[in-house]
Structure formats: C-alpha cells, structure tokens
Design a protein around this nucleic acid. Structure first.
Length: 732
DNA sequence: CTGATGGGCCTTTTT
DNA sequence: GGCCCATCAG
C-alpha cells in the first residue's frame, strides 16, 4: 500500500508546495527541466489519494496524447489502481468527446468527422471558386483559411467579425460559406472542436453547469500555449469551484502563430484574484554551461517573468559550435559525431536528438543516416496519414461512418477508376442539389431504385449504381463486423489494393502502407469506427515516438517541446532558417524564434552542438549564409568552436582533409595500444573502395580509423566492424 | 475517361 | 527539387 509520503518523496520545497497546494487557483511557473511533469503527475495522484478526490472528477489537459498516456500510466503505477475514469488527454481529444456527447445542442450530429488541413483546403476551394465565384489565384484558399482559423481561435464568429478591408470582407463571406459547407458535410475542422466547445459552454447554461459540476479539479499543462478558445474553456469549466491548476513557462511559448497567447498567464491573475503563484527554478536536467548559455539567449527577450534558474550540475562540457560547408557536411558531422560518441560509450544512440526549424531540413539528415547504414527515428507521424493511399482508405471509412461527407465522397467515388468522371459528377451534383440531398445520398437512391429517372444514364449510371450498392453494403456491414474485417471487405470489394499494385516500386510501397493501416485496425478488435477515425484525426507528431528503438531522434524544434536528451544537435542555425526569414521584420515573431532556440537548447542534458552552414541549398538554389544571431548572444567562454570548411571556397571533399581533429575534442585521446592501422597506409574497404588512413586511435579495445576514400571521402570507422585490408604500407 | 507531361509555386512551425 | 494543377493525346 503506497503511502502519502511517497508522493512527496524526492521533491524540493517549491515542488512540494505545488503538489500540496490547497484548493483554489494555482499557477506554477516552471523553467525547463524543473520537473513540472513530475509535479503535475504527483498532484493528480495526491488529489486522489490524500484528498480523496474521485479520479473521474479530475480533468487534466496535456499537450500531446503521448504525455497523457505516460502520465496516466505513471499515476496508475504510483497508486496501484486503475484510473479509467480519469479524463486525461489533449484539448482537442477532450473537447471532441464533449461535442459527441452534446451533439443534440449542435448543428451537426454525433457521427461528425474531423477534417484535416487538406480537407479544409478542398472545402475552401469549393467556397471560393464555387459559392463566391472568385479567382483562386487572387484569394488563395490557404490565405483565407489562415484568417478563418485565427478568427476561430479567437472565438470570433462570422457575425461578430467586423471587416476593415476589402480582403476581410471576402474573408467574412468565405468564413460563413465555409462553415455552412462543413455543417452540411457533418464535419468540423480542428479549430471548430475548440470553438464549438467554448460556444456550447457559453450558450447553454444547462450544459455549462453539467460540466462545471462534473469536475472538481481542472489541471492544464503547457498553459503558455493556450489560445483564447482554450482559455475560455478551462476558465469556464473551473468557474464554479475555482480549482484550476495551470503549469507553464512563458519562455517556452512557441505557438503564437496558431493563436496561443502567453499573456493568458497574466490573464489568470485578473480572472482569479486569489491565484497562488509558485515558481520552480531549480533545473534538474542540464549542466550549468547549457543553462548559462540558454539564459543568455532568452534574456534578450523583454516582457517576461525573470526566473533565476539554477542547477547543482556545475560545469559540464562546452557547447560545440561547428561551421559546416553545406547541409550535407552538416549531416555528416552530426552522424559522425553520434557514431564516435556511441563507439566511445559516451552516449546511447537513443539519447541523441537532432533538431531543426523546418521539416524540409530532415531530408539531408535522413539521407546521411541511410547512407551510413545507421537507424534513426523521425518524428512525423502525421506524414503517414497525409499520404494519398492512406487518405483514400480513410475516406472510405469516413464515408461509411458519415455519408454526408462530400469531400471524402468526391475523393473516392472514382478511385480506383470506375468510369465516373467529372461530367457525371457535375450532373449528379445538380440532380442531388435539386432535391436538397447530398451527392452520396443521391447515389444511394439511384442504386436502390433502378426505375427512378435521373439525368444520368447508360454506363455512367450503372457505374454509379454499382458504387452506391457497394457503399450501402459496407454501411450495413459496419454494424456487425469488427473494424479490421470491415476494412478488409472494403479493400477487397473496391479492388483498392490491385489498383495500387501497378508493378512499380512506389506502388509496392503504397500497398505496404495500406497493409500497415489494415494491421493497425486489426490490432484493436474492440475499437469502434468513430473512435478510430477520431484518434487518427487527432494524432500528434510525437505520438509515434516510441522508446523501443535505441536510435537517434530527428524532429522539429516545435515537436521537441517537453522532451529531453543527453546529446542535442541544433542544426541550421543561420539567419533566415533560425530565426526564420518570415520572422525577420516582426519583433513579436522574432521573440518567438528566440524562444524556439531556447526550447531547443534546454532539451540537452549534457552535450549541446550548434551547427550552421557556410552555404545551404534551398529549392535547388544555394546561397551563402550568416550564422544565427542567437549564437552571437552566447558568451564566448561557454563555446568551443570547431571551424572546418570552406576556406577559400575549395570543394568539400578536399577540405575534409584539413579537419583531422573534428569530433576529437569531445574527450581525451585514448591511450596508445597495439594498433592494426597507422596513418599513411593504403587500405581497401568492401563498400567505400580504396583510401588512405589519416589517423587511427585505440578506443575501448577497438580502433577508430579515419580514412580518406577516393570515392567516399573521409570516413571514421571502427576497425572491428569495417573489414578493411591494408594494401600498402606507408613509406617511413 | 484516363494517364502522361510540363509549368508554376512553394515551406515555417501543428492539432 | 517536389507537389498540384491544367492541358492534351489516345
């Protein structure tokens, strides 16, 4: 039987104070690595165990599904009890559940589907070129959507919106029409999930009271990244009991662009005058050097609550700044350094991470990892779900679940090709429109009543009827079949796999992806279609980051929030990349870039590498780069510079000759011992061909050999793995 | 109606 | 260098 004392064990005074805070509003301002997740976890456990709060009367909102899952698991371990009733998840997942329950109060029904960015775009295109009859080139769906999205995040409805420019008037009309179309499709977008929840609580006293009474305690993690809608939701839900427990760090606010406002932290003080504020200032993660350097960067931001971060981990290795010739060299440095450190047992591969500003930067890194034959983990789960074949399959499932979804209908009605072309669809739409039904519903009727007269005739009609019958069959099959079997049936009858399998490598890859999705649905026999679709729509980037592969992680700085690693490489630290070129002329955005840099730096426990390139190729164009202003802000005594390349603009391969001492400064040189290879020898490698040894050193009973190969350039290899032969001794 | 070809635009960051 | 879209031949 766990004791209360256990829940407070190993906590410092401030953490303990937070965990044991009495009822009432609490704000915990926590620096990076100060154990805020720990505090949140223990607080929930403490409420249940010490205060006797029932788990189902607690609502905790986390930033990712992964965080929620891990935290819940941890609490269950600590308390030794099943916490099924505890409401714990992201804002979107939490609100989506409320909307499904309260669908009676909403303009859509409980079978609604969630539209992703691509679906939103498809709807907005219909709005602009269809409803508004405007030129898509002048009014790009993306731009209009962006405006609509920020309005939704700020809780501004089309009626509230007061346009003050011609463009905004268009936006207002588009916003209205777009909402209408979503409702007709029985669909919501990401922003709607929050917006409708906030409006529901605002609009229905009955529903509001129901949820206010349902929860005794509301806890919110990463509070600095809440937007207006999220703020109103938690503020309202906590309104009755005032038991709101928020944890956050203004310095780590990096989602301003999607409506997040760290000033919500200040708003708390106004809205809850009796707010207790607790500062967590001790850092348990990083070395003093990393902490000092990151503070030097963040201190340049004004308007922040200064925190006096301190650590007991004094000293630490210097931050290594490396100038690479280009992004290939940058990637090579990263991979070589990881390989070397791993070979020296200084770090586990899984404790290394490479962080970048934009997703596009992962490519050069991935290529290098693949070329060197080293495994890696890429954070980017949603990539999988945005693939054409996966979106197609999901569209089948969505349509079975919700036949009103015309976007999904349009996507698959002729995929694989069934002889239903644009013209047929246009006729169908007109015919359906005249009867005020959706195209899908019209298709059902056409299939069910062969005698019904329609403007669609001949081949097109029978093709459409065939599709309608199939779909109707799946609709009824859904009632009895488990999800995996249902999907198998759909794929078989639609002939979708055969359609993908066109004999090309790409086709094969697509088949594999669909098979993977099929496996996923078969794993959860008991999961319902609605839940599956919701889960897939709301999956977050880091959710696929599993611990089971011991390999370095590649991820964006945004995805890195809340994570930590022994060794961190920040790449692309150049003006225009970080800070991003789009932020250069806006002080607020520049401040956010700085916070991004701060988030990246403070992910590291021990070693921090900062890399920038002399020249970088973007869209096939290469340009000379200036290193990031953020590096300049770090005191020189915390940095060790490894300058390598580009002297006089020589080609990279030749320069690699010059930097013999590349990752060598990480540790002391090993003691000399009996060695197989010596500088100057000519060697042959099964993969890299012939080359010359430039250096060899003993490491842990093995030998690290640096060889310049004629074809492959400089490589560092472990003698025991490399299977290299000496062809010719050097002349003494 | 389908599949091939080439031009234009693009990339922040994510639920 | 890649994705989306318009265009065109079969």
């Amino acid at each position: 039987m766990p004791e209360v004392a256990n829940l407070l064990e190993g906590l410092n005074d401030a953490q303990r104070k937070a965990v044991e805070a009495p009822d009432g509003p609490v704000l915990v301002l926590a620096g990076p690595g100060s154990g805020k997740t720990r505090v949140l976890t223990r607080r929930i456990a403490w409420l249940i165990q010490e205060r006797g709060v029932a788990p189902w009367r607690i609502m905790a909102v986390t930033f990712t599904n992964k965080a929620a899952k891990e935290m819940k698991h941890r609490i269950e371990q600590m308390l030794g009890q099943d916490l099924r009733g505890l409401s714990m998840g992201t804002f979107h997942a939490t609100c989506a559940r409320i909307l499904r329950k309260e669908a009676a109060h909403l303009p859509f029904n409980r079978d609604y589907v969630i539209y992703d960015t691509a679906d939103q775009r498809a709807v907005m295109k219909e709005v602009i070129s269809g409803d508004l009859a405007l030129d898509e080139k002048r009014y790009s769906p993306e731009k209009v959507l962006h405006r609509v999205s920020s309005m939704k995040n700020d809780l501004i409805t089309p009626q509230d919106f007061r346009p003050d420019s011609y463009f905004d008037e268009i936006v207002q009309r588009a916003y209205e029409a777009y909402n209408r179309r979503l409702i007709a499709n029985n669909a919501v977008d990401f922003d709607d999930i929050l917006l409708y929840t906030a409006l529901l609580l605002r609009g229905s006293r009955e529903v509001c009271l129901k949820y206010q009474n349902a929860y005794d305690h509301i806890l919110v993690d990463e509070f600095q990244d809440t937007n207006a809608a999220q703020y109103e939701i938690v503020n309202t839900l906590a309104g009755l009991r005032n038991n709101l427990f928020c944890v956050g760090d203004e310095d780590q606010s990096i989602y301003r662009w999607r409506g997040a406002d760290y000033k919500n932290v200040l708003r708390l003080r106004t809205d809850f005058p009796d707010l207790t504020t607790i500062l967590l200032e001790q850092n348990y993660r990083s070395t003093q050097i990393i902490l000092d350097a990151s503070r030097a960067v963040i201190d340049k931001n004004t308007f922040r609550t200064p925190k006096k971060l301190f650590t007991e981990h004094t000293g630490g290795p210097e931050i290594i700044v490396y100038e690479a010739y280009d992004e290939r060299d940058e990637a090579q440095f990263v991979v070589d350094t990881i390989a070397t450190m791993v070979a020296r047992r200084e770090v586990e591969p899984g404790e290394c991470a490479v962080m970048y500003r934009t997703n596009a930067q992962s490519r050069a890194l991935e290529e290098t990892f693949v070329r060197e034959g080293l495994p890696y983990r890429l954070v980017g789960a949603t990539r999988f779900y945005t693939r054409k074949e996966i979106k197609d399959v999901l569209a089948y499932l969505r349509l079975v679940h919700n036949p009103d979804d015309t976007i999904s209908f349009a996507r698959i009605v002729n995929t694989p090709p069934r002889g239903i072309g644009d013209k047929t669809l246009a006729t169908l739409e007109m015919w359906a429109g005249s009867g005020s039904i959706t195209p899908c519903e019209a298709t059902f009727r056409l299939a069910e009543f062969p005698d019904i007269s329609t403007p669609i005739t001949g081949k097109a009609r029978s093709a459409l009827a065939g599709f309608g019958n199939m779909l109707a069959g799946w609709r009824s099959a859904q009632e009895t079949l488990p999800l995996g079997r249902l999907l198998q049936l759909i794929l078989d009858e639609a002939g979708y796999i055969q359609y993908l399998d066109d004999g090309t490598d790409q086709g094969e890859e697509r088949v594999q992806n669909v098979t993977e999705l099929l496996n996923l649905t078969q794993q959860y026999e008991e999961i319902r279609l609605a839940e599956f679709l919701e889960e897939v729509a709301l999956i977050s980037e880091v959710d696929n980051l599993t611990e089971d592969a011991n390999a370095p992680t590649l991820l964006t700085l945004h995805a890195a929030k809340g994570l930590e690693f022994d060794v961190v490489f920040l790449v692309g630290l150049e003006e225009g990349v970080l800070p991003h070129s789009r932020s250069l002329d806006d002080a607020e955005e520049m401040a956010e870039e700085r916070r991004l840099m701060y988030v990246g730096m403070t992910r590291a426990r021990k070693n921090l590498f900062m890399i920038y390139t002399f020249q970088r190729t973007v869209w096939g164009e290469s340009s000379l780069n200036v290193r990031s202003r953020f590096i300049e802000d770090i005191p020189a005594n915390l940095i060790s510079t490894t300058r390598a390349s580009h002297m006089g603009g020589i080609a990279p391969k030749q320069q690699q000759f010059i930097w013999g001492s590349k990752p060598a400064r990480i540790t002391e040189p090993a003691r000399p011992q009996e060695q197989q290879f010596r500088a100057g020898q000519r060697v042959s490698h099964p993969r890299f061909g012939e080359g010359i040894v430039i250096e060899s050193r003993a490491i842990n009973n093995d030998e690290e050999v640096s060889v310049v190969f004629e074809e492959a350039g400089l490589k560092r290899l472990m003698a025991s793995f490399a299977n290299m032969q000496v062809i010719k001794e050097n002349k003494k």
